[in-house]
Simulated scan of single mutants.
Amino acid sequence: MATTIAKQYTRLLALWPKDALRPTLPFTRAIEHRAAPFGVQPITPIPQDSKTKPSAPAPSNPPPSTPPNPQLEQSQVNALFSLLDDRYSKKYALSPGVLKPTSAPEHYTNLMEEIERAPQKTWWQAKLDEWKMKIRWS
């Protein structure tokens, strides 16, 4: 059973989408931490600070005091697969009015466009956009 859990965690890590907004803090690290007791090796490289020189390896987390229960872990794996399959947004679909409120019908469209542009912005472009948002043009 434990090898099945390890295989499922490995598959989850391979299929999980990359986080473009926070590439240094992906959710896959949490999955890797959860899967470590089952022998799953991390696939996400941990970024090194350019200011710190490499020294002794960082201490690893101590093993849990009790071994993980594969039956309980299977429910956690199933929950992650349901998130990956987008099961809940399919089951509980939003009405079109929720994403296009009458007060600002283009709000969520603009928000998604901004999120898609954010990873390609330079620091200066991000600051400029931040200042533009603080100034009210009437």
Rank of each mutant, 00 (worst) to 15 (best):
A35C: 08
S103N: 13
L83I: 06
F38K: 01
S50T: 09
Q74I: 02
G39I: 04
S103Q: 12
I46K: 14
A30I: 05
S82M: 10
L25R: 15
P96A: 09
T109H: 13
E113P: 00
M112I: 05
T109Y: 11
E106Q: 14
P101T: 07
T52G: 00
I115M: 14
V98N: 03
P67L: 12
P23Q: 09
V40E: 00
K91E: 12
L25E: 14
K100E: 10
T66V: 07
P96V: 06
R117Y: 05
E114K: 09
I43G: 01
Q76G: 03
R87S: 07
V40M: 06
S89F: 03
T28H: 00
Y88N: 01
P45M: 10
A93D: 03
E114T: 08
N69K: 12
S55W: 08
Y108G: 00
H33M: 02
I43N: 00
T44K: 00
I115F: 10
E73L: 01
F81Q: 14
Y88F: 15
E106D: 15
A58Y: 06
S50Y: 09
P105Y: 09
K51D: 08
L84H: 12
A79Q: 12
P42A: 04
P96W: 12
P23F: 05
Q74M: 12
L25H: 14
L99Q: 08
P59N: 07
P64F: 08
A36F: 01
I31D: 00
A93V: 07
Y92F: 15
S60I: 06
V98M: 10
A56T: 11
F81H: 11
P101Q: 11
A93W: 00
V77G: 00
L94F: 11
F38T: 01
F27V: 05
P70K: 05
P68S: 07
A30E: 14
S50W: 12
P96I: 06
P70E: 10
A35Y: 02
D85M: 06
N78A: 11
I46E: 13
L94H: 13
N78F: 04
P101S: 09
F27T: 05
P63F: 04
T44G: 00
D49A: 09
Y108V: 01
E114S: 13
G97T: 05
G97R: 06
L94R: 15
N61W: 05
P62D: 02
P64I: 04
I31N: 00
Q76C: 04
T44N: 02
S82C: 04
T109V: 10
P47V: 06
F38R: 01
A58T: 07
P23K: 05
T102C: 03
Y108E: 02
G39D: 07
T66E: 14
R117V: 03
L83R: 15
P57M: 08
S89D: 06
P23R: 10
N69F: 05
Q76D: 07
L83Y: 12
T28A: 09
K51W: 07
P59K: 15
E114Y: 08
F81E: 15
N69Y: 06
P96N: 13
D86W: 08
L99C: 05
A56P: 01
L83K: 14
S60N: 09
I115T: 07
A58K: 14
